[in-house]
């Protein structure tokens, strides 16, 4: 266990410096910057009756949660293991006396720090941009946006990193999952919605009693579960996915090709 923690820490530090200097980081920064820029545009140019809460709610729901969070997590998460395989540097780590799951944990943790940093700042920046309008933000809305961003970033990143443990092209599978499976299932009325991560993230984000959500044109707004329940479900999903990923990386062989 101590070996695992030590190796995880060392790989976390190695990956953190790597990820900070990568092109993916640049792409991730650009992605995270889009919602605040849009919020600023809307806050400046929207008609007078648009309230700050509506701006924050709409942008968080339609743009952040459904597009930015999954794409950013996909860009960052799919690289966790796959980058080492594609660059053929995984050999160095797998021939060192470290438990193999440390590779997943260390690199994932570094990636998560980046994802939290970007999505967290993005959420804060959207709230600040929306607050430029006259009027007050509903109580707890900014916190909900922040929490949904962080939790969404975490769960999606873990999911895509784990897919990368098992599949050679996690990016393609992740795209299919995000834009085909989730977009289709999460927007179909009925119980099947709860099979998606989106549904639970929406449950954290949306408070149907707040007026700002009325104008966001969200379907089935009353069908969401409570934030606590959603958080619990997502925590279980994240832990199970992580365990599956750790078991997978401990057993899998990676045949490196030119």
């Amino acid at each position: 266990m101590i070996e695992l923690l030590r190796a995880t820490w060392l790989l976390f530090r190695m990956q953190l410096t790597m990820v900070m200097r990568s092109r993916r980081m640049l792409l991730a920064i650009l992605l995270a910057a889009i919602p605040p820029v849009i919020a600023l545009i809307v806050a400046t140019f929207a008609p007078g009756d648009v309230k700050p809460g509506e701006i924050l709610a709409s942008i968080s729901f339609w743009l952040n949660l459904q597009v930015i969070v999954p794409i950013l997590a996909l860009v960052a998460g799919s690289a966790v293991v796959t980058e080492e395989i594609e660059n053929r540097t995984i050999t160095y780590l797998f021939t060192r006396p470290i438990p193999r799951p440390a590779l997943l944990f260390g690199r994932l943790l570094a990636t998560l720090v980046l994802v939290w940093l970007l999505l967290g700042s993005s959420a804060i920046a959207i709230a600040l941009a929306a607050a430029q309008r006259t009027g007050e933000l509903p109580d707890g809305l900014a916190l909900r946006v922040f929490a949904a961003n962080i939790v969404g970033g975490t769960v999606y990143t873990i999911l895509f990193a784990t897919i990368g443990v098992f599949l050679r092209h996690p990016m393609i599978v992740g795209l299919g999952y995000t834009f085909a499976f989730e977009m289709a299932i999460a927007n179909v009325p009925g119980g099947s919605q709860s099979l998606t991560i989106q549904y639970h993230l929406r449950s954290i984000l949306v408070d149907a009693t707040e007026t700002c959500w009325q104008s966001a044109e969200i379907l089935n707004i009353d069908s969401f579960s409570s934030p606590g329940e959603a958080l619990g479900t997502l925590a279980v999903v994240a832990i199970v996915t992580l365990v599956v990923g750790a078991l997978g990386i401990a057993r899998r062989q990676y045949v490196l090709t030119a």
Binding site: L31, I34, I38, I41, V42, F45, A46, P47, V50, E54, I55, S58, I59, W62, L63, Q66, V67, I68, I71, L175, F179, S215, A216, E217
Partner: peptide
């Protein structure tokens, strides 16, 4: 896909709010 879906989402949000 990111570009297509992102522009789609941005256009929707901007239209919805403005």
């Amino acid at each position: 896909f990111g570009l297509v879906f992102l522009t789609e989402a941005v256009s929707n949000v901007l239209f919805q709010l403005t």
